[in-house]
Amino acid sequence: MNLFRLAGDMTHLLSIVVLLLKIRTTKSCAGISLKTQELYALVFVTRYLDLFSRYVSFYNSVMKLVFLGTSFAIVWYMRYHKVVKQTYNKDEDTFKHYFLVLPSFVLALLIPHAFNTVEILWTFSIYLEAVAILPQLVLLQRSRNIDNLTGNYVFLLGGYRVLYLFNWVYRLFMEENHKMRWIRDFVEILNTAWMSGLVQTALYADFFYYYIKSWKNREKLKLTA
């Protein structure tokens, strides 16, 4: 495992910690999209179906359990916690799940890694993760004031994707035994995971722009439509 991958995972983990911290300490989930959180829970369930059948490392297994557990905890807080659920911006979080789930699933059926249930759902989870942030970004656009924790949460989530891209480039060049192998692999750049990762990172570009601008000007974060 290289440093980019580790930094990416830690950033991802930190984003979840920040979100749970916001929910638990402020007893509020204002500005957080339940749609996005439910989609992430679905992403983790469909991706980690091989949790018990395919062992990679202790680190991987623990992290998978953490991601599964925390994503369901967040959804539980937003849906059922009697104080937290009242702070949910239900009227502004109107993005439809199926609008993202359906195309991801159709695409996974068309271009699966291999044709069996686990592989199709794995491919589906890769596509879905790429676009699952959309309801959250739409909600941010609609919110007048974005509190620091919410801003930091989305920033860390985007940071995780950028670090994963660096990780893939690093692996592409460093992990090949054959010197010319990377040229063939580079043609393969249009494959599932890479394209999804690129799309996902691009989605954050706009957010990053306003985040850094507000940080430079020491202003409160505000996205203008």
């Binding site: 995972d9 991802h12 490392s57 991987n60 991601f67 890694h113 893939w168 692999d185 599932t192 890479w194």
Partner: peptide, 10 residues
């Protein structure tokens, strides 16, 4: 292949 690469990630 690249797909196999990302299979050991999260």
């Amino acid at each position: 292949c690249l797909q196999e690469h990302v299979k050991d990630e999260l």
